[in-house]
Design a protein around this nucleic acid. Structure first.
Lengths: 202, 202, 202, 202
DNA sequence: AATGAATGAGCTTTCATTCAT
DNA sequence: GATGAATGAAAGCTCATTCAT
């Protein structure tokens, strides 16, 4: 019994929560090699667990991949909400969100690469389909766009078009950044954010 | 003699050129299901040929996929060059290219979906890497951006950022269009093109 | 506790160690049908395992085939070393090795057939090439030949020629034996060994 | 008609007999790469004919391979019979045959490699089986062995054993020669032939 | 909860052979 | 006879998932 609890303690220090390790290994591999380059056995190895162990925490590969997506999305949302002041102007808030997103992805390139892989895959397609049916896109961005349109600050275009004008460039640029084709510094980030705003504003 | 020419005619109608059939089947499947959902056997079946026949025309799966990409790229380039007037202003030419691209993809949604799948896959990555090393990006867009920058009509940003500001939104919107989330009509296309211009211009 | 050990016993009898089973099935098939006649699926079936299981134990077909070769070679070496007396005359030791080899192969005809298949195949060629580069042929036979030559008991010919004069006949005869064209009994084995010695001696 | 015969003449000069070309290409490829490395399409290409053309001359791959074997065997027999003097002693005739065989193979290494490939393959096995059933081994060597035994010049061993004592070493040495492990010159050839005789003689 | 050997469906590719021309 | 595009069976190998321990 005593031995047990001692071992328990040791383990509490040494064992960094298998579920987290699995998720960490998965982002890394999928971000770097794509879904193809990340078979379950490899994820397990990188996570330091047995292949079967993954299935103790995730019902299937699909579940793991979707769960991973949701976790990252949550982290991003949290990051963006920090410092988001509802009282600021639409433009200020827009710039906050856009520069924030770029900064988050620059700081967490694996998260960015993962999101990309996810979106451009059957997983992403299925996800979008579900989201669409549920329609519960209570997104921080969408609210902003709606307000902007109703206040005649942003062009009167379908929300989805406004989203495309905003995120399309960001994704493209981030990709170029992760591939080393540009290096985004603060000045460039702000210029890009301003350009995106120009595309939206009335 | 007569029989011959009749047979010839019949063949002209009936013989569907297997190479073309294979390419057609491949775009369709890959566009709709992704690379995963398009194994060689399925492509062959959809093309109405035997599995081995594909290898009479393409050395390997990779070659088929890359060849397909090049063919589509060529078709797009040809389409955009039609009606492109070098004497027009930068803005006019920009709008021609952007609306042209949207119109092409709306008319050929499978081509769009294929390009997307390709770019977001190891194939696309390898392709980009090669292109980068060769650096021979004698692209119609890039020339226009360079001119625009040197004439102080377009903001002085890295070309790659200008490309992102242009194509990023287009890709996003096209994706939404193919998924039925918006319907792009001529009016909307022009508004979007104009917005993209606003993001670029000085 | 008791149950445990009983189960242990049963397992010792019943559990046939898949790796061994695979190797056994592989020798049998390859010896009897050649490499062509031994596809992985057939080996698996004969071993009573699933096709994929082979790859749990051997990284690839090539690895399986080479490993099998090494195992057999080891068994032969062990067999020949048993009863090999360094103090005996060159001739006595030569006869020990030659008759020993024949006896081993007669007792293990599958091993003989496998070795033959292996040597006369790309595997054998690659193997020989590697061995040659490494040159570490610390072979029991070669030592004996060297001694024999330096003591003027064996003709002064290149070692490789001495090897050919020794093993060439043995292989031919063994092949005829396995095909049922001769039956090797002890008397014949000794006569053959003596003949080989006549070919070598000064 | 005239045109036809002229063309015929031209062809007789230009066209080097497709059948021969196919056989030539086949030995070369099979000798150098083994049966695996010589698919029909590759043989056809090397022969400068279409894939289907091979089937105009040989009913199947197996037929081609067996025919090729017979042709080479015939050439060897012809070569050995040249200068074979029935009046000479057994020993003299034996040395003639053995050195002759070595010399033929040294001069035609592709033939040697082909024979080896053939013998160590299902083809060779089947061939031997058939030969055995037919028993029509009216071989020049076998006659000599029989004479030698009946004249008490050669040991009284089964003919097949005598054959093994003779050809076993030759094949081994030839292999080493083609692989560049020894270089056979006239002196060495004669020494080897003499050694083989020592193994046989009473 | 954790393990990892085992599974077997499914993948890409090869190649002897056929047959319309 | 000659062609070569087309065939399709069969090969080696991968990998998500299971399950006895």
């Amino acid at each position: 019994m005593i031995i047990h609890s001692i071992l328990g303690c040791i383990k509490d220090v040494a064992k960094p929560d298998k579920r987290k390790e699995i998720l960490r290994a998965a982002v890394e591999l999928i971000a770097e090699q794509g879904f193809h380059g990340a078979p379950m056995a490899m994820i397990a190895e990188k996570a330091g667990v047995a292949a079967g162990t993954i299935y103790c925490h995730f019902r299937s590969r699909d579940v793991l991949i979707n769960e991973l997506y949701l976790e990252i999305e949550e982290r991003i949302t949290a990051f963006l909400q920090d410092g988001y002041v509802v009282e600021n102007t639409i433009r200020e808030r827009f710039l906050h969100l856009v520069t924030g997103l770029l900064r988050y992805f620059i700081a967490h390139p694996l998260d960015f690469r993962y999101m990309e892989q996810f979106h451009n895959s059957p997983y992403g397609a299925a996800f979008r389909r579900d989201k669409c049916l549920g329609k519960s896109d209570n997104n921080i961005y969408m609210e902003l766009f709606e307000q902007g349109v109703s206040q005649r600050v942003i062009q009167d275009l379908p929300l989805i078009v406004l989203a495309a004008l905003t995120f399309g460039p960001l994704i493209s640029i981030m990709r170029d950044h992760t591939l080393g084709f540009v290096t985004l510094d603060d000045r460039l980030i702000e210029k890009i954010a301003a350009s995106c705003w120009e595309a939206l504003r009335q």
